[in-house]
Nucleic acid binder design. Structure first.
Lengths: 69, 69
DNA sequence: CATATTTTACCGTTTTAGCAGTAAAAATAA
DNA sequence: TTATTTTTACTGCTAAAACGGTAAAATATG
């Protein structure tokens, strides 16, 4: 049950940071289209671009699995 | 301090699952090169391809930030 | 040891994400 | 309301990701 909305999550954080999509794009070093796509949950974006945006917004990524490693 | 090695993390889980890179690639619906690249921490891969591999290996992704959650 | 399997590496070809530009909705401010 | 900003949407072009094929290292197996 993966109802987590990453796009909305990112959008909310961008709003809290007081940034427009264009500003976030420039800070992350990506195009405005990429920010738009990510907030729309387009998953065929590049991992590095998503990472760049998450970094600007101070969002951490964690990977969990049953075999806790 | 981002010393987390996602490529190694994935490789270890693949090993535990008893899969070769090619088998994992087929299960995830991606090319063998993509699996290889991801295990080598190439970050210019597509988010959906990474997600597909994580899903096969039963690895969950979580996003954390100071605000919310 | 030998040899079978797996991983790493490189190479063309195809596919497509990323990009800037533009413009029209939608939201926000004045 | 009107004016301004922001978001959404679509465009063509270009760089490069994804891919399969191939082969050489590396690793595992008998």
């Amino acid at each position: 049950m993966n109802d987590f909305d990453l796009g909305l999550f990112i959008k909310d954080h961008r709003k809290v940071a007081g940034l427009t999509q264009l500003e976030l794009a420039n800070l992350a070093g990506v195009g405005k289209t990429t920010v738009f796509d990510i907030e729309k949950n387009k998953e065929t974006v590049r991992w590095n671009n998503l990472l760049a945006i998450l970094k600007v917004l101070n969002i951490e990524v964690q990977f969990k699995s049953p075999i806790h490693k």
